[in-house]
Simulated scan of single mutants.
Amino acid sequence: MQHVIKGMSLRWLLIASFINSFAFGFIWPLTSVYLYNELYQTLVTIGWVMMANAVGQAIGSLISGRLFDRFKPYMLIQFGVVSMIILQIAFIIWHGWPVYAIILTLVGFFGGWITAAINSYGTQVRSHDGRFVFNMLYFTSNFGMVFSTALVGPIYPFGITWLFILALILYIALFIIVHAKFNFTLDNRTTDKVFTKIKLPKWNLALVYASVLGLVVLWISYAQWQGNLSVYMNSVLKLPLWQYSMLWTINGILIAVIQLGMNALNLSSNHRSMFIQIFLGIVMFGLSFLILPFSHHFGGFALAMIITTIGEATAFPMIPALVNELTPVSLKGRYQGLSAAAPSVGRAVGPLVGGLIIQQQGYSILFFAAAALTFVAFIGLLVSMVTGYRHTVRYDEN
């Protein structure tokens, strides 16, 4: 008989989050290089493939989050991990064109599925405050991605199959952990009949959607760092590609330092601190884009990345934490799925929007536009919080 535990273990949840992002990091970072150099696809085609992967992540997150509240979460997350195991085997066998693109889209779907499930399980941790939990989930997710991204470069020359094999091993390990540690009775589960009658208070719903929409806008700007900036540095400014890679090494190290420092100082558990983190973080994030038009050497880009990371690491984890505070147990999965989908929507839209601006106006206008978008997100969230937060019902679980 399966052993049933009470409440989610934070340690095993963070380990699962780390392994999930570690495994996923062996798949998507090499997509552009592999499609361009090995499968001889155009940059336009590559853009559509990346968009399909991001849209798949968004849809997977939304569906998984909704089902979390209605179905057995333990079965849902197992289904997601088993599907990823099957897809890694498919990648090992078939990785030509166009099968690679089809499998990558499915990988995006189930990657989003698992991420939303892990975030939803985060609402079931009883040993720590919700803000601490989501800070740590953000940290472990980024830490896993940093590790895998660092390993992709040395391993890729031996063949892409080895990366899929490593991802397969990691997903098998994730399945073992999920099977052993994720089966417990969740709090205040409701039947479908009762579920349909439960609704968020008006102001809670408004703030949740404002927060998620703000996160989408921020990720549209952030997507420029992950895509168009590499072309700008390498092709326009003729800077070596290792300098662009070094920016993400800085990003990963800083996120680790900031998150661990905040948790050591107990800042993530402070209620008032949450709003300072969100708004100050967004301001810092926006300021970094104003540095980029005037940067022509690595030092300028490194400074911009440091400021970006400070903003990202303080503001981004607090949005799912705020969503957790504003939603009852019976609806947490639905709205955590929504917040998990937001980055994927931003990653899907961002490269297309950025490409159009570059084509019409150039890179400098793109960076100013990204700063303006961040400012819009800041104003929207600030007005929403000032107007509505005092009218909300808070569902503090810890």
Rank of each mutant, 00 (worst) to 15 (best):
S384R: 05
H296L: 05
V323F: 10
S288A: 15
M84Q: 15
R126H: 13
L237D: 00
A180I: 03
T149A: 15
Y156N: 01
G7A: 10
M145W: 02
G261Y: 00
V178I: 12
L186G: 04
Y363L: 07
G122S: 13
K72P: 03
W48E: 03
A54W: 05
L30P: 05
N204S: 08
H179V: 08
S32N: 07
F91S: 02
A315E: 13
F378T: 03
Y74T: 04
L237Q: 03
L382M: 01
V376G: 05
M385K: 09
F134H: 10
N398D: 09
F71T: 06
A167T: 13
G311Y: 11
P154G: 06
T185P: 05
S268T: 14
V217I: 15
F316Y: 13
I27M: 10
H128G: 00
S245D: 09
S330L: 05
S9P: 07
A206W: 07
Q359P: 04
I220M: 09
L247A: 02
W203M: 14
S17L: 02
I77V: 15
L381V: 08
L322G: 00
V393A: 10
G65Q: 03
A370N: 14
Q277D: 07
V178A: 12
V4H: 15
W162K: 01
Q57K: 14
Y335M: 10
S230G: 00
R131W: 01
M284W: 11
V125Q: 05
S211H: 08
R272G: 08
A369F: 15
V216Q: 06
L292K: 03
Q277F: 11
H179R: 09
G362S: 12
K202N: 02
S141E: 06
S295H: 03
Q359K: 14
T387V: 00
